[in-house]
Nucleic acid binder design. Structure first.
Lengths: 331, 331
DNA sequence: TAGTTTAATTGAAACGTTTCAATTGAAAGT
DNA sequence: ACTTTCAATTGAAACGTTTCAATTAAACTA
C-alpha cells in the first residue's frame, strides 16, 4: 500500500512537506503542492486513518449503538443525529452488537449514543469519561459523563388516557412491545399510573404484548378477540404500527372502530393520518430527539458545562380512531 | 488515558508481556497473567484500536455504505450482513454519506458493501484492490476487485406482468419510486421489456412516480385518480408499501380491488399477506441478499478465487389483490 | 557435570502519520 | 556588507500497539 513516504519520495520532498500538503497547509509553495498532489494521485495514495488518528488522538467519528436493525428506531431519529454530526464535520457510524462491543471498547469513536439494551450500565460507567462522553436514549443513569435524552413517554400516555376517559371509556386496554424497550416500558408505566389517577383499575388481562410491528399488532389482537368474550371499549398502543395492525384485526372481525373499540397510538408516524380511520396518537418529534442527542454529545466533547437539556416536546393528536361522529373535529 | 505501558509498569512486567496477556497468548504463566489483568482492571485500561490496527494492518471491520437511513433498505438486508459479519468475528458499521466518504477513503474498514448512489463508479474503481475488496448492491461495474450482488428485478416483474396478462389485463400501469434507486429502475425496465414482449404498449401516462413509502403511494394514486377519467385495469408497484398505499387510495375512491383495479407489489414484506385484500407480490429474500453480499466479501478477503455468486431466488406469490373470485387459490 | 531442551520473559523495531523545532536561503533593512 | 526578517522546507520524535528475535532461568538428558 502506498504511504505518505512513497508520495514524498516520488515528489522529491520530505515527509513533513508531503504531510502538510495533504492536509492543505498554506505554508507550502504552490509548485511544491502541485508536485506532491500529482505524485499522490499517480500512486493512488490513501491516507491511513489509523495512523492519523493515533497521532492526533481523535477520530472525529461518533458512534450510534443500536440493539439491532429492525424495530422502530430508524428513519427520523437517525437522520437527526446524522445531520448534526455532519454539520460538525464529524462522521457517524451505526453499529449493533450484543456482546463484544468492540467498537465501543477500543476507542474507534470519540463519543457514543446508546440505544441498545444489551449494553449494561456497568459497562457505560466504566467507559464514560471526560474524553469519552456518552448520551443514552434508553435508560436513566447517574454519571457526570453520561447524559440522558429520554422521551416524555409517561406524559404522552397520560394525555391519551385522559382523552379516552373524558370520552367516557371505563375499561381501557394496552398494547405493548418487548420488555426490552425502555420507551415501551415507560409508556406502559405511564398508562398504569394515569389509570389509577383517574380511578380506573389496571387489568393484566387487557395487556397485549406484541413486538412493535404492524403484523404483530394484527396477529395478537386477532388472538385476543378470539380468546375473549368481553373486551375493553378502547385500547392504547405503545406505537402506531401495532395500533394499525390491531385495528385491522378488529375490522376483520366485523367490529367498528371507534364505535365498538376506540384506539389511540403513539408516535404519529407519517401514515397515521392517512389510515382508515385516521389514527389518534401522540406526536413525537423523533428527528428533534436525534438532533438533541447529537448536540448534547458535542457540547460534552467541547467541555461545555452547566447546560440544560431541553425536553423533547410531544403533542396529543385526536383523530377518528377514537372520536365518534359528533366529537370528531380533525383528520 | 491509560496505555499498555502503564499497565506493564504497574504489573512490573515488560510491555511485550503485557501485550501477550491482553491478547490471551498462552506463552505466559498464570501468575503473570493474573498480575497484568489485575493491573489492567485497576487502571481501567482500554486498548487503543488505532494503534492496534495500525500495527496489524487490519481492522476486522466491514462497512456498509448507504445513501441514507430512510427508505426500503433496512431490516432483513442489514440483518443478513450483520449475522454473517459477526460469525466471521468481524464487526459491521453502517454509515451514510453524500460527499466526503471519509470512512471509505481512510481505510477504517477492511472491505465495503455499497448501496449508495452518491458514490461514483470512478471512486469505487479507485479504491478497490486486492487488499480492499468491494461488493456493490446497486450497480453493475467491471472490476476484478468489485463483485456485484444484484437482485433479479427484471425477472420478478416479468412474472408479475405475465400473471396479469394471463388474467386478461391489457392496460397495465406501474408505480415506481425515485430514479436514484437501481432496483426500482431495473424493475421499471423489466416492466417495459415484458410489456413489449407480450405485445402490449407502454404508456408514459400510466407511470406513477412516488418515493417507495406507503404514504407516497396513497397520495400519488389519489392524485392520479383525480386527474384521469380512464385508468389501467391493473398496476404493478415497485414495492409492496406503495402498492398498499395505492390500494387504499383506490378503495377510498369507492372502487374495488381487484375487480376495478388489480394490484401486484414487490418484495413480499411481512404485512402483505395480512393486508386487505392480501397482496400479490414477488417474494425476495432480502436477508439472503445480505448474507450473500457479506459472504462474497469475505471470500474476496480470503483471496478465494474462481467462485460463482449465486443469484438471489425470487418467487411470484399470487394473492387476492390480483385474483378475482374464481381464480383465487391462496391467502 | 556439562550440554541441551524447554518455558517464560523481554528489548527493540516497526506500523504511517503529525507537528514541533530547527535549518536553509533569499529578500529586505540599515 | 552585515544583520534581520520571513517563507519554505526538513529532521526527528511521538502516538500505542504487536511481534520477531534474543535472553534468561529452570529442567532435563546422558
Amino acid at each position: 500500500m502506498t504511504t505518505l513516504k512513497d508520495v514524498a519520495r516520488k515528489a522529491k520532498v520530505s515527509l513533513a512537506t508531503a504531510s502538510y500538503v495533504i492536509n492543505g497547509s498554506d505554508l507550502i509553495s504552490q509548485p511544491t503542492k502541485d508536485k506532491v498532489l500529482f505524485a499522490a494521485k499517480e500512486l493512488g495514495y490513501r491516507p491511513n486513518g489509523n495512523a492519523k488518528n493515533l497521532k492526533k488522538n481523535k477520530n472525529e467519528i461518533i458512534g450510534l449503538f443500536l440493539s439491532g436493525f429492525t424495530g422502530p428506531f430508524f428513519g427520523e431519529l437517525l437522520e437527526g443525529i446524522q445531520d448534526t454530526v455532519i454539520e460538525k464535520g464529524y462522521e457517524m457510524v451505526v453499529c449493533a452488537s450484543d456482546d463484544k462491543h468492540r467498537l465501543l471498547m477500543e476507542r474507534y469513536v470519540d463519543g457514543a449514543i446508546i440505544l441498545n439494551y444489551h449494553i449494561k450500565d456497568e459497562l457505560l460507567n466504566y467507559l464514560a469519561s471526560d474524553k469519552f462522553p456518552i448520551v443514552v436514549l434508553d435508560r436513566e443513569i447517574e454519571n457526570p459523563f453520561i447524559k440522558q435524552i429520554t422521551l416524555p413517554n409517561s406524559l404522552g400516555v397520560e394525555h391519551s388516557v385522559n382523552h379516552l376517559v373524558e370520552l367516557g371509556h371505563k375499561r381501557i386496554g394496552f398494547i405493548t412491545g418487548s420488555e426490552e424497550s425502555y420507551d415501551g416500558e415507560m409508556r406502559l408505566k405511564g398508562f398504569k399510573k394515569t389509570l389509577s389517577q383517574r380511578g380506573l383499575i389496571y387489568r393484566e388481562i387487557d395487556l397485549i404484548r406484541a413486538d412493535f410491528t404492524e403484523t404483530s399488532g394484527l396477529l395478537s389482537m386477532k388472538t385476543y378477540l378470539d380468546e375473549h368474550e368481553e373486551y375493553p371499549t378502547a385500547f392504547i398502543s405503545a406505537n402506531d404500527e401495532m395500533a394499525m395492525g390491531a385495528i385491522k384485526a378488529v375490522q376483520q372481525k366485523g367490529l367498528q372502530v371507534p364505535d365498538d373499540i376506540a384506539f389511540v397510538g403513539y408516535d404519529d408516524i407519517d401514515l397515521s393520518k392517512h389510515f382508515h380511520p385516521p389514527l389518534s396518537t401522540v406526536r413525537v418529534q423523533k428527528k428533534l430527539w436525534g438532533i438533541t442527542a447529537a448536540e448534547t454529545l458535542f457540547k460534552m466533547l467541547d467541555k461545555e458545562t452547566g447546560f440544560e437539556v431541553e425536553d423533547i416536546p410531544i403533542e396529543f393528536i385526536p383523530r377518528s380512531s377514537s372520536l365518534k361522529g359528533g366529537e370528531r373535529d380533525s383528520g
